[in-house]
Amino acid sequence: MSTDLNTDLLNNDLLNTDLPDDDLVNPVEPFLRTDRMPHIWCPGCGIGTTVNCFARALIESKIDLQSLALVSGIGCTGRVAGYVALDSFHTTHGRAIPFATGLKLANPKLNVVVYSGDGDLSAIGGNHLIHAARRNIDLKVICVNNLIYAMTGGQTAPTTPDHATTSTNPYGTFEPSFNLPHLVEAAGAVYVARWTTFHVRQLARAIGEAFQKKGFSFIEVISPCPTLYQRRNKLGDSLDTMKYYKAKSKVKNGAPTSEVGLTISGEIIVGKFVDRERPDYQSMMRAQYVDSLGDRFVEPMEAEVCS
């Protein structure tokens, strides 16, 4: 545990970060559509924290913002697309990944980030998630996992852990939940990590690392939804949740993903679980065409078609 509790983060003030003090101008500001503030997220929500980490990763990794596009689905997390000052697409529920696939394939120069919720990515969009991982599309997927469908009022998600109470399982859930790192590793992701909103530095670093990978990268961020998940399950407020994350998180880089499933109040295994090389979709596609078509192969146009 390298970071101490940071009350700024707990207050979830988007415009505050824990970057070094010598940054006089708020460094995150240029990444945000300040004309859209205040944002819609509840006090204590973890999503804003993840956005801070994302912005910080962009600074630290010196990512070219012009070639960066961010795609969200629908949900509280899905609103991220609306707040970042990037080419940003707020798509339909579950379909951020296929939209992002189209962006990336039609203009391979784009760096495409998918930023969405656990329900969006793994329930309604679950099929797209595994297929994009299988194809190894060069996307950076940031999944804010608050263990619930928040936007719609706290219903059961495929990630909701055992016996948690939700609005649609008022007597407690009984469905087994998805262990997302395990799922995406099995499907073919080249980079899989999990952190919590407590691990702001590690999270920013992980996002930076994902930008260095070519292929399907998946970062799960365990994040509080005090309004609908913590409260309903008597898990306290966001401060209590941070304490829980701090106390029960265990960094295990390289942990077998089959062993990182979550429970309602048990240990949270965090770290970088998968970091491997596999040719990405576009490299494979190109190689195949060159092999089969030789001189007849023409490089796909890079977005010059219409502009």
Binding site: F89, P98, A106, H128
Partner: peptide
């Protein structure tokens, strides 16, 4: 150019729109 066979029509019908917003 590019053709991709997607996992279903939900995907296909939005993937193409990603392509459009990338300029195709």
């Amino acid at each position: 150019g590019t053709f991709i066979q997607m996992e279903d029509e939900l995907a296909a019908s939005i993937t193409l729109q990603g392509g459009v917003w990338a300029g195709a």
